[in-house]
Design a protein around this nucleic acid. Structure first.
Length: 152
DNA sequence: GCCAACGTTGGC
DNA sequence: GCCAACGTTGGC
């Protein structure tokens, strides 16, 4: 089982939206490295942190579970859609998505600032300068520690 | 709103 | 294949 951190701007889709909807598809990822994680490595049962980016404050808002492994992102085929990409086709899809399920919303967002100063989270990708990757692998230790301090 | 860091595109 | 220009991300 693997652990992940997945970013989204809450103005577009937040942990509250996921809590209401229970499950959703994680479409619109347009970065090859992130695509590869979803297409090749994510498996049902994997756990992920829901990270609010460009938010007040930015940070980890809750937990979700992967419930469907990588499959073609059909939004890329939709002419005129904001996620449309002409180089992707149903025969040869460029982009992939997964489905996620709501698990937990933290009472408060664990801010990035708190992640940065925690010695037990040293080396975590999201705290590194210029870390723009929207899907990041996470060690089991970092995942468990974040949940522990977010609940306390 | 600013801007640094990064990924992608396209001319050559 | 290089690299400048451009667009995007995302913290602050």
């Amino acid at each position: 089982m693997k652990y992940w951190l997945m970013k989204c701007e809450p103005s577009a889709y937040s942990i509250d939206d996921l809590q209401l909807e229970k499950t959703t598809s994680w479409e619109g990822v347009r970065n090859y490295q992130a695509r590869n994680f979803m297409r090749d490595e994510m498996q049902p049962g994997d756990m992920a942190l829901f990270y609010h980016s460009n938010a007040e404050p930015s940070g980890v808002a809750g937990v979700m579970k992967i419930v469907k492994p990588g499959y073609p992102d059909s939004f890329a085929f939709k002419e005129g859609h904001k996620y449309h990409d002409p180089k992707s086709s149903p025969e040869k899809p460029t982009w992939y998505m997964v489905d996620v399920e709501f698990v937990e919303k933290f009472a408060q967002v664990l801010p990035l600032a708190a992640i940065k100063v925690d010695p037990q989270l040293e080396g975590i990708m999201v705290a590194q300068k210029g870390s723009r990757l929207s899907i990041q692998p996470l060690s089991k230790e970092h995942f468990k520690h974040i949940i522990k301090i977010a609940r306390s």
